[in-house]
Amino acid sequence: MTTAEVRDPELPGRLLITERDTLVPLLRARPDDDFALPTAGCPGWSVRDVLAHCSSALMRVVESRYEKGVFSPACNDRDIAERAGWTNAQVVDELERGMTEAGPVIAEAGGVLDMVALGEWVHGGDVRETFGEPGAYAGPGLQDALTLLVRITREKEHLPLHADLDDVDEPQRLGDLAAARPPARFIGGAADLVRLYSGRPVETAGFELVGVDAGELNLFG
């Protein structure tokens, strides 16, 4: 049994803390105008919208608020609208609190909330990319994010894929390992693999993908 198949309950929280320590200082150093910038990763959402969504989702986890339709597009829009009168600093404060406090709750949930941590990390990449920061979907959280991605695709019995990554020593096997179809193949960087699985824009010249269309990989739909 590989490490990707064994759930580390502390990993999602560790990823959130790593992201907190990377993203929050960046946000506090940006002028208010930057929070209005549109994001390519989330069409129709500004940086502030992304952050408000992230902070509200984490606080729902912290406070165990899971009413019907939670995390649906309508719920996300409602959470963002509820924070319309907040200052940008208040949104960042809530985000910092959520990233700090959600880990233990996610750990206790047994795996059903692990994808929340991965989504938060991807959204951090959306913000970094909008700001023109290097390594938007990489950085110190990449290995934990990749481990989480591999396990989630297996648990969801996603289509099988064998990934040879330029910046990771061992090949990664994602998706349903027992699937009848042969695994698709990916050759490229880990950040591009994350982009594909999260439906983010990616330069096709930077990787090889065989046996599957890029859109079929999207976990977040």
Results as ranks from 00 to 15, higher is better:
residue 66 Y to I: 02
residue 64 S to L: 04
residue 85 G to M: 04
residue 99 M to E: 14
residue 61 V to A: 09
residue 41 G to L: 03
residue 128 R to S: 14
residue 124 G to N: 12
residue 111 G to R: 08
residue 47 V to P: 04
residue 84 A to S: 14
residue 126 D to M: 03
residue 101 E to S: 11
residue 31 P to F: 00
residue 123 H to D: 12
residue 71 F to W: 10
residue 91 V to M: 10
residue 51 L to W: 01
residue 38 P to N: 03
residue 100 T to D: 14
residue 35 F to V: 11
residue 124 G to D: 12
residue 94 E to K: 08
residue 130 T to E: 12
residue 56 S to P: 00
residue 30 R to P: 03
residue 77 D to M: 08
residue 96 E to A: 15
residue 48 R to S: 09
residue 29 A to I: 05
residue 25 P to H: 04
residue 64 S to T: 03
residue 97 R to G: 00
residue 36 A to F: 01
residue 130 T to M: 09
residue 62 V to H: 03
residue 74 A to M: 02
residue 129 E to K: 15
residue 73 P to D: 07
residue 56 S to H: 12
residue 24 V to R: 05
residue 49 D to N: 11
residue 68 K to P: 00
residue 84 A to W: 01
residue 72 S to W: 03
residue 52 A to R: 08
residue 97 R to A: 11
residue 79 D to P: 05
residue 107 A to R: 08
residue 109 A to Y: 04
residue 52 A to D: 12
residue 26 L to D: 02
residue 51 L to R: 05
residue 78 R to Q: 12
residue 24 V to W: 01
residue 36 A to L: 04
residue 111 G to K: 12
residue 66 Y to W: 09
residue 79 D to N: 14
residue 103 G to Q: 10
residue 79 D to F: 10
residue 71 F to S: 06
residue 126 D to L: 10
residue 78 R to K: 14
residue 89 A to L: 08
residue 79 D to S: 15
residue 42 C to G: 00
residue 86 W to G: 01
residue 95 L to G: 14
residue 116 V to D: 14
residue 48 R to N: 07
residue 66 Y to S: 05
residue 59 M to E: 12
residue 130 T to P: 13
residue 83 R to D: 06
residue 50 V to A: 05
residue 104 P to Y: 11
residue 133 E to T: 15
residue 26 L to R: 10
residue 125 G to K: 09
residue 117 A to F: 08
residue 59 M to N: 12
residue 102 A to S: 15
residue 87 T to I: 04
residue 118 L to A: 15
